[in-house]
Design a protein around this nucleic acid. Structure first.
Length: 469
RNA sequence: GGCCCGUUCGUCUAUCGGUUAGGACGCCAGGUUUUCAACCUGGAAAGACGAGUUCGAUUCUCGUACGGGCUGCCA
C-alpha cells in the first residue's frame, strides 16, 4: 500500500460548520499519524451558492484549528474540463447516456411513482434509446447504473453496507449546461489527487455506492471509506443555528483554545480507552478508524470547557500569550490586543490554571490592564466599608517597609487583620477591591507581587484618601 | 413511501459472550477556602423494547419503537 492521502472537501456555501472541522481533524490526524498527506479541495461546483467569502472562512478556520494541509488547494470548479472529459469517456464506453427528459417530465414521473408507492428513482426513457432518435435539444449525461445485483461499501466505520443496485439511480453526471455535478467531480478529483482514504460525514454513505459505480466504470481503484456520524446539538437534534454556535469562527470568538477544540472534537465520536485529555501528538499516534463510534454524538459545552481549561493550564506562558493576543485582535482589534500583549505575561502563571477561555483570562487579569485611578465596580464597592478602609489604611502604612515577598506579605496581612480582631478574609475583600476594582481576580498576594510595591501602595492610597474625606 | 445507518449513566464513551457494566464531564452532599476558581472526600446515575441463539447475553440474530441519512440538472 502506498502512502496515505486524505482530504477535506468542504463546499464554500456559508460559514465553516463545526462538523466540517471535525471531519477535517479526523482526516488530518489519520494522515499525520501515518506519514501521509492531508489535502484540501474546495468543492465549488455549485456556482449559485459558492462564495469567495465562504472560501476565506474555510481557510481561516483550518488555520485557526492548526490543521495544516499539504500542496496547493484544489478548486473543483477549475477542473471542469477534466470532469467533462471523463463524462465523455463514460458516454463513449456505454457506461453513460444522454437524457433528454425535461424537469417537468421528471417531476411527473416522481409524483406518479410516489402515489403508487413504488421507487421514486427516475427511470429515463432515453437509457437505451438509439442515437438516431435523439432530438436536437439540451440534454444531461446520466450514468447507466446496473439494475441487478448489489454493491457493498466496505466502510471502516460503519462496517460492510450492502445496497441493492436497483436502489441506485441513473444520476446526472453533466448538467444540461455542460457543467459537472458533484457526484462525478468527487470521484474524478479524489482519483486524480490520489486520495486513498475518504473520511467524511455519513450523509455521504449512500452516495458512496453511487460513486463506486463510477469508479467501476472507469476501472479505477476504490478508496478506503470511513463515514462519520453527525454531530448533534445538545438537544439531540441536528446541530443548527438555533443551538447558537455552529461555525468554527463562533468558537474562536468565544475564546476557546484551538488545542482544546481539537481535543474535544477528537473525543466526539472517537475514543482511545479511557483517555480524555491528550495532546495532538498522542492523538496522531492513537487515532484510527476502527475506534470511531457509529452513532451521532451531541455537542457538550461543559466538556469542551473542561478540556479547554486543562489545555490552557498546561500551555507555556509565551505560547499562551501569543494565542490570547490573536484572540484579542479578532475580538476587539489591534489596539486592545496591544495592551494585552504588553502587560499580560507576568500574570499568566497565577491565572492560567483557573480559566476556561481566553476571555476569562483577560477578565481575571484586568487589574494589570487598567491604570490609576481605577474604577471600582458596584460589587467590589460593597467591600469598602469604613471599617475596611481603616484596615487598609493600617496595612498601607506597613507595606512601605515590608520586604516584598509573598511570605512576608501574607504574614503582614494576617497580623493586620488580627490587630482589628478579625480574620484575613475580612481584609482580603477590601484589599481586592482596592487593587483591582472588581471581585474576580487572582489571589491578592499575586496581585501585589505583580503590581509591585509602588503601584500597590498608590492604589491603596487612592482608596484610603478618598475614605478619610 | 422506498433504501441505508444508528440506540450503554443527563452528556461523551469503555466493554470486542462470563465484569459489583469502568472512566470523563456535569450534577448532588460534605470538607477546605481570599473573590472567581481550584482542590479533597463521598454519592446518585445506563445496556430502548420484545423474541431467538447459547450453559451464559450489553455483546450474536430477527422484529418493534425511536432518532438520523439518502432518495436533486445541491454538496
Amino acid at each position: 500500500m502506498s502512502a496515505i492521502v486524505t482530504r477535506i472537501a468542504p463546499s464554500p456555501t456559508g460559514y465553516m460548520h463545526i462538523g466540517t472541522a471535525r471531519t477535517a481533524l479526523f482526516n488530518w490526524l489519520y494522515a499525520r499519524g501515518r506519514g501521509g498527506k492531508f489535502l484540501l479541495r474546495v468543492e465549488d461546483t455549485d456556482k449559485e451558492r459558492s462564495s469567495a467569502e465562504a472560501t476565506e472562512a474555510i481557510f481561516r478556520g483550518l488555520e485557526w484549528l492548526g490543521l495544516d494541509f499539504d500542496e496547493t488547494p484544489v478548486f473543483q470548479a477549475s477542473r471542469a474540463d477534466r470532469h467533462v472529459e471523463i463524462a465523455t469517456k463514460l458516454l463513449a464506453s456505454g457506461n453513460a447516456y444522454k437524457c433528454f427528459s425535461t424537469q417537468e417530465e421528471i417531476v411527473k414521473f416522481r409524483d406518479a411513482a410516489y402515489a403508487r408507492g413504488s421507487s421514486t428513482l427516475f427511470q429515463s426513457p432515453w437509457r437505451d434509446a438509439d442515437d438516431i432518435t435523439h432530438p436536437n435539444i439540451p440534454y444531461v449525461i446520466r450514468i447507466k447504473s446496473p439494475n441487478e445485483g448489489h454493491t457493498i461499501i466496505k466502510d471502516q466505520v460503519q462496517g460492510d453496507v450492502k445496497i441493492k443496485n436497483d436502489q441506485l439511480d441513473d444520476m446526472v453526471l453533466l448538467r444540461s449546461d455542460g457543467t459537472p455535478v458533484y457526484m462525478l467531480a468527487v470521484v474524478v478529483d479524489d482519483h486524480d489527487m490520489g486520495i486513498t482514504h475518504v473520511i467524511r460525514g455519513d450523509d455521504h454513505l449512500n452516495n458512496a455506492a453511487r460513486q463506486m459505480l463510477i469508479y467501476k466504470a472507469l476501472d479505477w481503484p476504490i478508496p478506503v471509506y470511513g463515514h462519520l456520524p453527525l454531530i448533534l446539538g445538545p438537544d439531540g437534534k441536528k446541530l443548527s443555528k438555533r443551538h447558537g454556535a455552529t461555525s468554527v469562527e463562533d468558537y474562536q470568538l468565544m475564546g476557546y483554545p484551538a488545542s482544546g477544540m481539537r481535543n474535544y472534537l477528537a473525543r466526539l465520536g472517537w475514543s482511545h480507552g479511557n483517555d480524555e485529555f491528550f495532546s495532538d501528538d498522542e492523538a496522531k499516534i492513537w487515532f484510527d478508524l476502527d475506534a470511531i463510534g457509529k452513532s451521532a454524538a451531541r455537542f457538550d459545552f461543559k466538556k469542551l470547557e473542561n478540556l479547554c481549561k486543562q489545555h490552557i493550564a498546561q500551555t507555556h506562558d509565551d505560547a499562551l500569550l501569543h494565542d490570547i493576543v490573536q484572540y484579542k485582535i479578532i475580538k476587539d482589534g489591534e489596539d486592545e490586543a496591544l495592551k494585552v500583549s504588553e502587560r499580560l505575561l507576568p500574570t499568566l502563571y497565577c491565572i492560567k490554571n483557573r480559566a476556561k477561555t481566553y476571555g476569562e483570562i483577560i477578565e481575571k487579569a484586568n487589574f494589570i490592564l487598567i491604570n490609576r485611578p481605577i474604577e471600582i465596580n458596584e460589587k467590589a464597592l460593597k467591600n469598602l466599608s469604613e471599617d475596611a478602609i481603616l484596615m487598609l489604611n493600617r496595612l498601607t502604612s506597613l507595606l512601605r517597609n515590608v520586604s516584598w515577598t509573598r511570605e512576608k506579605l501574607e504574614t503582614l496581612s494576617e497580623s493586620v487583620a488580627e490587630t482589628f480582631d478579625t480574620s484575613f478574609g475580612k481584609l482580603a475583600g477590601p484589599l481586592r477591591a482596592a487593587l483591582a476594582g472588581q471581585t474576580i481576580t487572582p489571589s491578592v498576594f499575586d496581585m501585589m507581587l505583580i503590581l509591585g510595591r509602588d503601584e500597590t501602595i498608590a492604589r491603596l492610597a487612592d482608596i484610603t484618601a478618598k475614605g478619610s474625606h
